[in-house]
Structure formats: structure tokens, C-alpha cells
Amino acid sequence: MERFKVVERETKTKAYSKEGLGLAQKVDPAQKEKEEVGQWLTNTIDTLNMQVDQFESEVESLSVQTRKKKGDKDKQDRIEALKRQVERHRFHVRMLETLLRMLDNDSIPVDPVRKLKDDVEYYVDSCQEPDFEENEFLYDDLDLDDIRREMGENGGKLGKNGKKRGENGKKRRKTGRKCKKKGKKWGKVGGERVPL
């Protein structure tokens, strides 16, 4: 009987009363967990992008210095190492963005993403150390190869059903009209005419 009273009280509570506003703050534990993992993914992507910017600025400053002094082997080696590091970071950023998108679309559960957390944090924290060894099979358990291939074809813009999207994420429609001046084909993306 007590449980029934509690349920009845919750259903009769008005949305904008003090009690109703207090109830709105209660979040489903699964949704809260998903939001926390999504926030962690976003923060990790931002950290990796900041490191990429630092590496690129260092590459630029070293390349300016090596132009002045030709034949500096140490700086050339450092530039090559930084370029490899930038490529690895960009790979991880692409994979984490894919996971974030999949998590938002509910196409991947939270648990496999959470299992990656320790390895990804280790990579972010320790990638610049000289004795660092990267786990090359980090994302293999998630079977993201098919998704990466699809994303490579259309620049990462997929709809919910996996079909290609335009530059702004809207569905691309081919009309087959040709521009009179240049002979280019034009299509519509979200009501806008764009060259195909």
C-alpha cells in the first residue's frame, strides 16, 4: 500500500511545483553513465587536439631553424618523430570521435567504451615518453574497421541508416543540373545548391 501511495504521489505531482522540479533532476543511471563517458571522450579529444597543435608548432619552428642551418640531423629526426606522433594522435581523435558519435546514436553500448578508458588515458599521458610502447590493438575489440571504411568514403558524414550526407550533415540530393558557365554538375544539400 505504501508503494502505491508513493507511485500515486509521483504521478500527481505537477511539473512546475517545487517537488516536480526536484524530480526532474533525477536522471536515469544508464543515461548518466552514458553522459559521463561522452564527456570523457570529448575531454580526451580536446586534449589530443591540443597536443597536435603543440606538435605542429614545434615542427614548424624546427623546420624554420633547419632551413637556416642545413644538415642538422638531430632536428630532422625530431621533426620526423613529431610528424609520426601527429598522425597517431589524429588516428586516435578520429576513432574517439567515431565512438562518441556511435554512443550518441546508441549504436554502441557504454561498457566497451569504458574498457578503453585506461588504455586511452595511458596513451594520452605517456605518448611523449621515450620508452612508450603503444597498444596497436586498442580498438580491435570494437570492430570499427567497417565503420572506418564507410567514413573514409564520405568524410565521416553518415546518417542514422548509414547513407551518405552532405557537407553540413544534411542528406545530399543529386539533381544532375549542369552549370552553364563551367559545365559542373550541381546538387542540393539542405535546400542549398552546391557543386557535386
Rank of each mutant, 00 (worst) to 15 (best):
137 F>H: 14
48 L>M: 03
85 Q>F: 05
187 G>W: 11
141 D>N: 13
4 F>R: 12
18 K>S: 08
74 D>I: 03
78 R>M: 03
34 K>C: 00
114 R>D: 15
86 V>P: 09
142 L>Q: 10
152 G>W: 04
43 N>L: 04
177 R>V: 12
195 P>A: 00
122 Y>M: 00
94 R>Q: 13
149 R>E: 15
167 E>N: 11
161 N>L: 01
136 E>N: 12
3 R>L: 07
60 E>R: 15
129 E>D: 14
119 D>W: 03
3 R>D: 13
140 D>L: 01
130 P>F: 00
87 E>Y: 10
196 L>K: 08
130 P>W: 01
108 I>F: 02
164 K>I: 06
22 G>M: 07
27 V>I: 04
90 R>T: 11
53 D>P: 07
92 H>V: 06
20 G>C: 01
4 F>Q: 14
61 S>T: 15
45 I>P: 08
95 M>T: 10
8 E>G: 08
186 W>D: 13
136 E>L: 05
92 H>Y: 14
11 T>C: 00
9 R>W: 13
73 K>H: 11
156 G>Y: 06
186 W>E: 15
174 K>E: 13
64 V>A: 05
1 M>L: 03
81 A>H: 13
23 L>T: 08
185 K>S: 10
30 A>G: 07
49 N>I: 00
170 K>W: 06
112 P>Y: 02
59 V>G: 01
176 G>K: 07
103 L>H: 12
147 I>F: 07
100 L>N: 13
190 G>F: 05
145 D>H: 11
83 K>Q: 15
10 E>G: 03
126 S>P: 09
162 G>I: 03
174 K>S: 09
116 L>Q: 07
160 K>C: 02
3 R>C: 04
115 K>M: 03
